[in-house]
């Protein structure tokens, strides 16, 4: 396997605050990688550095062997690296289908083709019942699926998902888990997910990276991460141990 994304020594300062501290890792083509860590660990900041939202303070980033350090967000998207935002605000006057069409218009000028692609993804993301609704009218779970659908419509080869399961109920988490698995397995898209919902991230990920205070403190298979005393101490604490026991009980 070859690396689709390489992050080399990325550091990001906000004034005096070091949000990412010399972070290095790579993502293999076709991998499903989990990125976890406590609030404020710097996970979203790392996505923003990769996607070009923030210029990095130091370090380099490569996507499919091409350097993307400090490219603009739209340039990164055009190269085939899509992302969703932790906070998704859609105020406006686009319907669900129109939102997804905005994504598919990245690869075509034709309204007809953009619409066909968007309809296909709409069905794939189980949004048929919402097709003509405004995004702001939808329940959280559906809004998250719209954001993912819109990103998918740009036909990415890699997708960064920032907390798409936050605020969902157990049924919706199951649905989301199934969808992420399909995006990865059936569409062959490399996925990195930031997630606080342990059940989801531990079930889906082939490998997990743990971030704390801007640094990588652990990396490995989900089973190993669950056992890693450093991780348990730094981030997860008693609550997590209980959750895992519960999750294992379910399985």
């Amino acid at each position: 396997m070859s690396a689709i994304l390489q992050v080399q020594g990325v550091t990001k300062d906000f004034g005096g605050l070091r949000a990412n501290d010399n972070i290095s890792f790579s993502v293999e083509k076709g991998e499903l990688l989990g990125l976890i860590g406590p609030n404020g660990a710097g996970k979203s900041t790392l996505f923003n550095c990769i996607a070009g939202v923030h210029p990095v303070t130091a370090g380099r980033i490569f996507f499919e062997g091409k350097e993307i350090t400090n490219l603009k967000p739209h340039q990164v998207a055009r190269l085939g690296l899509a992302r969703t935002f932790q906070i998704f605000v859609a105020s406006g006057d686009l319907s669900v289908l129109e939102n997804i069409m905005v994504g598919s218009f990245l690869r075509t000028r034709s309204r007809k083709i953009a619409r066909q692609k968007a309809e296909e993804i709409l069905v794939f993301m189980e949004l048929q019942e919402h097709v003509d609704q405004w995004v702001s009218e939808l329940p959280v779970a559906a809004q998250k699926r719209v954001a993912m659908a819109t990103a998918l419509a740009t036909q990415p080869r890699m997708l960064l998902l920032d907390e798409v399961a936050a605020g969902l109920n157990p049924t919706e988490i199951d649905q989301m888990m199934g969808l992420i698995r399909q995006i990865h397995d059936d569409r062959g898209i490399t996925v990195v997910l930031i997630e606080h919902v342990m059940e989801l991230v531990m079930n889906l990920s082939q490998r997990v990276i743990v971030l704390e205070s801007g640094k990588i403190i652990a990396e490995g298979k989900p089973e190993a991460i669950k056992q890693n005393p450093e991780v348990i101490k730094a981030y997860l604490g008693e609550r997590y141990v209980a959750k895992i026991a519960e999750a294992e009980g379910k399985a």
Binding site: H74, A77, F85, F88, S91, D93, V102, F105, A151
Partner: peptide, 22 residues
């Protein structure tokens, strides 16, 4: 395409950028 992109920009510029819109 431009009309759609423009409406996406009005909605949320940051999201629009992430969808490849200049």
């Amino acid at each position: 395409r431009l009309g759609f992109q423009l409406r996406a920009i009005k909605d949320n510029e940051e999201v629009a950028r992430s969808l490849g819109i200049n």
